[in-house]
Design a protein around this nucleic acid. Structure first.
Length: 571
RNA sequence: GGGCUCGUGGCCUAGUCUGGAUAAGGCACCGGCCUUCUAAGCCGGGGAUCGCGGGUUCGAAUCCCGCCGAGUCCGCCA
């Protein structure tokens, strides 16, 4: 497996020679942490501060000793002492050889790890099926889908799930809004069915009707269940699943909340929680006191006084089911769900489950005017963002490529627009809040998806022209002919891809992949400037550069794929 | 008021987990590069008391404490 990870091969060689050198010098218990030195100071470095502490010697001295005794072999050609550091230099031609072999040999599989044999259920989005998605909620599928793609590449068996809330007050409110629409439509035509139901819930008759429907729903009344299912499905199909597919997000499984009420598992959760020592009762409603269990000064109500369940109660049943089907569960949730998530974790612990979901919380997206609010009409919907992005991208394409037919322009505009949206959101750490600005969300240059797509299009264009020139065979390239720094920088960055994927998966950090992809595209652009491929007058060099371009194209493709961004052949 | 999160050039972000080599990019600004594979690109330049104050350490953007500012939660809502 390690032969698929060129950088790892080199690092292991460094570790092996360090091991023997350190043993020879009497530093037996050393734990070796390798780092990446600044440019021009080699490829792999060992800092000797930790050793200095154990050996009670100056780190400079130790570094010097190591550099003096180390025996190098394989792909490492040089080792230098620089102050408290030992810097290792990889043989550039050899790195080129093993990297190109790995990338060209594996193609789309380059960067992929062997199957780990672990199943992860990754729940994301799970937006209320009451309304269309706005850009704040859109952070959820973008983080979730990207992470799912990365985890798959890293060897996990991943299933993504969307938890459809077809129970509870909001679902009933939607249904009631739709029901009343026929009898007496709202005066205010800006209201959607959910907002209408919500408005009616402020009247005593509305509140009464909703409460009545809710009880029927929870007791499994067939007519009510059927209506709510139908109404929520309508919103899911029309407003949510469709929007998600526009940004390249396909969810593997939609899990309905009602399932857990109907199969009795929610009832079992309630019974079990009631037996807990931390359970208390307030006017007929049951709750768990969270303070002794998690230090949070809050009451976790898991039934209403009429005995019906609450959201977190049902979520516990869902998680019990989840853990019957996976080894690890990851949830992507808005930061407003922190307490609810804590309730679920506490509930699972009370029910003696030793597993707990790992949760990634993201901060809200706000507008420059302030927090988004549907009620105040201060909101940007995902569909509108997409439409605007496609429109602007189309103008950009037309500006540059008036030669292309309408259909190509449209396709490229779509790829660029969706890419820009996804990249812009996934590039930021989830816990940082985002203030939405059109010019940033639709940024098409610099650190953006189109920058990466452009590098891909350039690589594609070279290969296509090569083929037209009859140069489609470059299997017998000779890596030893490479010697330009831009070629080696590109190779080095390429060699880092498998490690990057593994790191992103381990840290559950999709934003690191965005940064890597941008850096790699930048390397490619520098190579493009410095090293003519088709125009190269030496046949053999042209061949090896073609191989390099093909490999770069593969890495760009694999990066973009994991980011859920399409790779255009031309733009 | 209490809990959790965030604070890095004019603006946006990486680096924080795991403390180490001159704090890394992008946008904007200034100056260059299209008779050679797509200028959505490339090269150069200016611009940072890493919110503030203490502490730990040979060494702190990074770890600890306090303060200030912002977000979020503290519903028999989801």
């Amino acid at each position: 497996m390690k032969k698929y990870d060129p950088l790892k091969i080199c690092k292991e060689e460094v570790i092996n020679s360090l091991d023997s050198a350190l043993k020879g010098l009497g530093y037996n218990e050393a734990e070796l942490k390798l780092e990446t030195p600044p440019e021009e100071k080699g490829d792999i470095a060992l800092s000797c501060f930790a050793l200095a502490k154990v050996a009670k010697k100056a780190p400079q001295e130790i570094a010097q000793e190591i550099a003096g005794t180390i025996v190098l072999k394989g792909n490492i050609e040089k080792c230098e002492n620089d102050g408290p550091y030992v810097n290792f230099y990889i043989n550039k031609q050899k790195l080129a050889e093993i990297t190109l072999e790995a990338v060209l040999g594996l193609g789309d599989d380059y960067g992929e790890s062997q199957p780990i044999g672990k199943k992860i259920i990754l729940e994301h989005t799970s937006a209320n099926p009451t309304d269309k998605l706005h850009i704040g909620r859109a952070r959820n599928p973008i983080i979730g889908d990207t992470l799912a793609r990365i985890l798959k590449k890293a060897g996990f068996d991943v299933e993504t799930q969307f938890y459809v809330d077809d129970m509870g007050k909001q679902a009933v409110t939607l249904s009631y809004g739709i029901k009343m629409w026929d009898t007496k439509p709202p005066d205010d035509d800006s209201l959607g069915p959910y907002q209408y139901g919500s408005k009616l819930s402020n009247t005593s008759s509305g509140a009464e009707a909703i409460k009545d429907m809710l009880q029927k729903l929870e007791k499994g009344d067939p007519e009510t269940s059927e209506k709510v299912r139908k109404d929520t499905k309508m919103v899911m199909d029309k407003d949510i699943t469709l929007s998600l597919s526009k940004i390249n997000v396909e969810v593997d499984r939609y899990v309905h909340e009602s399932q857990f009420v109907q199969d009795g598992s929610v009832e079992k959760v309630i019974d079990a929680l009631k037996k807990s020592n931390y359970c208390e009762n307030e006017e007929g409603a049951f709750y768990i006191d969270l303070e002794p269990l998690s230090g949070k000064k809050a009451k976790f109500f898991f039934t209403r006084s009429d005995g019906t369940s609450l959201y977190a109660t049902r979520d516990i049943a869902y998680h019990l089911w989840k853990f019957e089907h996976c080894d690890e569960a990851i949830n992507i949730l808005g930061e407003d769900h922190k307490l609810e998530s804590e309730q679920v974790k506490v509930g699972l612990k009370i029910l003696d489950l030793d597993k707990s979901p790992e949760v990634i919380f993201y901060s809200f997206v706000s507008l420059p005017e302030g927090r988004m609010s549907t009620r105040k009409g201060r909101v940007v919907f995902l569909d509108d963002l997409i439409a605007e992005a496609v429109e602007r991208a189309k103008n950009e394409v037309i500006k540059r490529r008036e030669d292309l037919p309408e259909q190509d322009i449209q396709e490229i505009a779509k790829m660029v627009a969706i890419g820009a949206i996804r990249y812009n959101i996934v590039g930021v750490q989830p816990e940082k809040k985002i203030v939405f600005k059109w010019e940033e969300a639709l940024n098409f240059e610099g650190n953006s998806a189109p920058f990466i797509q452009y590098a891909y299009a350039r690589a594609s264009s070279i290969l296509k022209k090569a083929e037209e020139l009859g140069l489609k065979e470059y299997d017998d390239y000779d890596p030893s002919l490479l010697d330009h720094p831009s070629e080696f920088n590109l190779i080095k960055e390429m060699a880092r891809f498998p490690e990057t994927i593994a790191e992103c998966a381990k840290r559950r950090s999709p934003h690191l992949l965005a940064a890597y992809s941008f850096g790699f595209a930048s390397m490619f652009n520098q190579f493009y400037r410095d090293c003519p491929v088709l125009g190269c007058d030496d046949d053999a060099i042209r061949i090896v550069r073609l191989a390099l371009v093909a490999a770069a194209k593969t890495v760009l493709h694999n990066s973009l794929f994991c980011l859920g961004i399409e790779a255009p052949q031309k733009m």
